[in-house]
Write a protein that binds this DNA or RNA. Sequence first.
DNA 1: CTGAAAGCGCTTACAG
DNA 2: CTGAAAGCGCTTACAG
Lengths: 342, 342
Amino acid sequence: MKVENPTSRDIAELAGVSQATVSRALRNSPLVRADTRERIQKIARDLNYFVNRNAAGLRTQQSNTIALLLFDETEGEDAQINPFFLSMLGYITRAAAGLGYDVLISMQQLTDDWHIEYQASNRADGLILLGYGDYVKYHEKLSALARANTRFTIWGPRIDDQPGHSIGCDNVDGGYKATRHLLDQGRKRIALLGSTSRRSPELASRYDGYCKALHEAGIELVDNLRVDAMSSEGEGYRAVLTLLARGEAFDAIFAVTDVIAIDAMRALEDNGYAVPADVAVVGFDDISLAGHVTPALTTVRQDIRQAAEALVHGIVGLIEGTPVESSLMVPRLVVRASCGAL
Amino acid sequence: MKVENPTSRDIAELAGVSQATVSRALRNSPLVRADTRERIQKIARDLNYFVNRNAAGLRTQQSNTIALLLFDETEGEDAQINPFFLSMLGYITRAAAGLGYDVLISMQQLTDDWHIEYQASNRADGLILLGYGDYVKYHEKLSALARANTRFTIWGPRIDDQPGHSIGCDNVDGGYKATRHLLDQGRKRIALLGSTSRRSPELASRYDGYCKALHEAGIELVDNLRVDAMSSEGEGYRAVLTLLARGEAFDAIFAVTDVIAIDAMRALEDNGYAVPADVAVVGFDDISLAGHVTPALTTVRQDIRQAAEALVHGIVGLIEGTPVESSLMVPRLVVRASCGAL
DNA sequence: CTGAAAGCGCTTACAG
DNA sequence: CTGAAAGCGCTTACAG
């Protein structure tokens, strides 16, 4: 009863059946008589036998694996992934496991052909793409993916003629809620920190929401209150310095990501401004840091878990041929101390 | 020149060579004439051909994949992984990629036989285990892994007769440095928050370092200044409440993890104690939150990147048969505001 | 309900 | 330097 690296043949021999029957029994085929099946499964368990994935995959041309590509604009191998995406990872893994899929991770610039290779080499049945980035630049990459018949789903906005499936958050709505809330607190001169470039449609949409809220309140847009900032460390800090240097008065900041917002709060404090007394701050994403900084950051939460599950269902749907709609999730304002409402 | 899902046979046909030669050429075998090799590789590139991993893996009995198991004591599917381990993930992935390995992730309780399955099914060539946990409980799990000839390396302390390879941090040294630093600031009544159970040797070692520093300074241990706390949300907060309820005076806290320390700081503030004026606080791990809370947390840093690389080299060494020593890394005190030294 | 057989796409001795 | 051949361990029509 001791076999080193048992194969289905070994099980077959011990069970006194053919190897084919073993294969069927282990896959719970109804073609096998119940008692035979149980006998075989018991032997397999006793021998610590597990189906060889390479052999099964070669035969079926499937890997039951999803490749998760975390990409980032930021250069350098030391770059930290936005924690928002990192926390999605856990939920993605669990959701995938629930559907019988393994998750292979990779952190890459979206510049190599790496992503195509993954499916072409049968390592993964499909791809999930995660990252805030330059969608104009990605467009050709995504097209290449589509041309290679690679199945993928991407976290982000639905873009016209962008290939592939996507799950996103209603960023306009989120930006609107954030700004509206600041207006409700009586703030009138609300600065906007973050990219407004159409190249980053998710962030730009948050800006659109901001504009919409101001417009609705009859407040004019002030260009001087808008400062570009990327979502990496130090950017929010720099943006506040720029803002202060301009000398344009402001009583609130809406930062398009928490990473920017948290940095901005430090800059404000370092320069003698109290948050929220002098300047109210609202961010976006609700990364775990947000609840822990002082003052705790009011922000717009995207439901990470729901997003992760939608992504996994999306890609598994593509893989298994059950159509899945691209969808948009509704974000929710999380009120904490930094906006002055508490 | 259009083939749907090209195989090495297709390439062979186009190149006018045998399939065997294609296989050799693609693996850069010196057996193939240089010009033949290049011709073949060009065709492969043009066709977007990639070696089928399942077939190659079946043949060679390797997957060139490492499975990364993030386990956690905390119950419930909503449980968040300690950010310390999450940030290791990025470095592990990059280090593995550098050595030609993919990384498969899984979040599990270390209670299933999942981990054995991974190697037995040829999905992974080896395992990296990551998590703070109950080593007594794990011992049997690790033994089962070893019995099944599963190659694994674990982040943690070297434990006598614990099977497998491990990379760890010199936790005694870290605990000593933290406590010593508090003593240097003139603090005398230093509370200890965290597990001292031998079941969590890493955390217990930090406690050992604490004891050592106190002993060296001629200060007696006060049992009442020690409160058990797990490394999950709310535990540090509760621990401070317990401490306050005891009425034992204290002027500093050494928390065995940052997660506990950050929670503790909030509890102190909520109860009218200023950090560091009334109570100095030092944590352990240097999670990214640590630098962002107010006051910024003084802590003991484990070099995540170095750790990740050591883990990857460890497991790859085991896989490829080049012996790798288990090793201990030296942690470093990172002085910020919470200890009162700035 | 079960078995014999083919074949998934590679890698690598073996022979030349 | 190259080719013919075997075989890795499965799954699944096909036949009974």
